Simulated assay, not measured.
Amino acid sequence: MVLALSLLALTLSAAPATPPSGRALNTQGFRLYQSGRYPEALEKFQAAAQATPDYALAHYNAAATLGVLRKQGKVCEYSAHRDVILEKLTTAVRLDARRLQRAKTDRDLDGIRDTLGWQKLLGRTPQKEADVPALLRTVSWYGPGVGVYGTTRALKFQDGGRVELWKRDVDDSGTPHESRTPGTYTVRGRTVEVKLPGAAPVTGTLSEAGALTFPEPLGGFTDSPSECDA
């Protein structure tokens, strides 16, 4: 009998431990989040989403924590890019539509309000021509990155047909110089005409895929700034 009990104890001790559930991992992550340990919290939330892929709250909490890290300027360190945050948030909303209502007032997600992805969650899409004027005004439009300098131009469409072109030029010594040029714009369907002082009007289009394209030298714009590029 003693031998049998010993063998049973050995068998039980050798059995692999049951991995924590997605909900248990999410709870651990929330405690870390509350204590301000955001990188560790993110790790737990991501593990929770991986352990239980249909657990909407884990995906949501991962998105919110990435939003906090983004606000803290840790974009590159933790891949807190806008598209990554939106991917996780979109998954959360797909799994549980109530997550969208929470997201509307969540300060952690303020960094993605001016994206096409957020507007799509609210029901506005570039596929609908009627939504184009609102998308132009609510989305921040960035030009492509230029090496280590990142994004060097952006367009901000405003109410009343006003637009502002932001540019950053780098001189031979590597010193950046920023400028802001106000102008006007009009919209007809998908066509956008921009008028800037001292230049001929430039006509571009907002595609169904969400790319805003003008002839050079204005060029193309998307809702994603160039980040972490070498």
Rank of each mutant, 00 (worst) to 15 (best):
L5R: 14
L5F: 14
L8A: 14
L10Q: 15
L12G: 13
T18P: 12
S21G: 15
R23D: 07
R23Q: 14
T27A: 04
L32N: 05
Y38M: 10
P39Y: 10
P39V: 10
A41Q: 04
A41K: 03
A41W: 00
L42T: 02
K44S: 06
Q46K: 14
A49Q: 04
Q50A: 15
Y55K: 03
A56C: 14
N61M: 03
N61D: 01
A63C: 09
L66Q: 00
R70D: 07
Q72R: 15
E77K: 06
E77F: 05
E77N: 06
A80H: 10
H81A: 10
D83A: 14
V84A: 10
I85F: 02
L86M: 10
T90E: 15
V93E: 02
L95C: 13
L100N: 06
Q101S: 12
R102E: 03
R102D: 00
A103V: 06
A103R: 01
K104C: 10
K104S: 11
T105V: 12
T105C: 07
L109T: 00
L109Y: 01
D110Y: 04
I112S: 03
G117H: 05
W118N: 01
W118L: 03
W118A: 03
L122S: 09
K128N: 15
E129G: 12
V132N: 04
A134T: 09
A134L: 14
A134P: 02
T138L: 15
S140G: 11
W141G: 01
Y142I: 02
G143T: 06
G145D: 07
V146C: 01
A154Q: 03
A154H: 03
G160M: 00
G160L: 01
G161N: 06
W166C: 01
D169H: 00
D169E: 07
D171L: 04
D172C: 04
D172H: 02
S173F: 09
P176V: 05
H177S: 13
G183Q: 04
Y185F: 13
R188M: 09
V194C: 01
L196A: 09
G198Q: 07
A199V: 09
G204Y: 04
T205D: 10
L206K: 05
L206T: 07
E208N: 13
L212Q: 04
F214T: 06
P215R: 13
P215L: 07
P217W: 08
L218Q: 01
G220L: 11
G220R: 14
F221D: 06
T222E: 10
S224P: 00
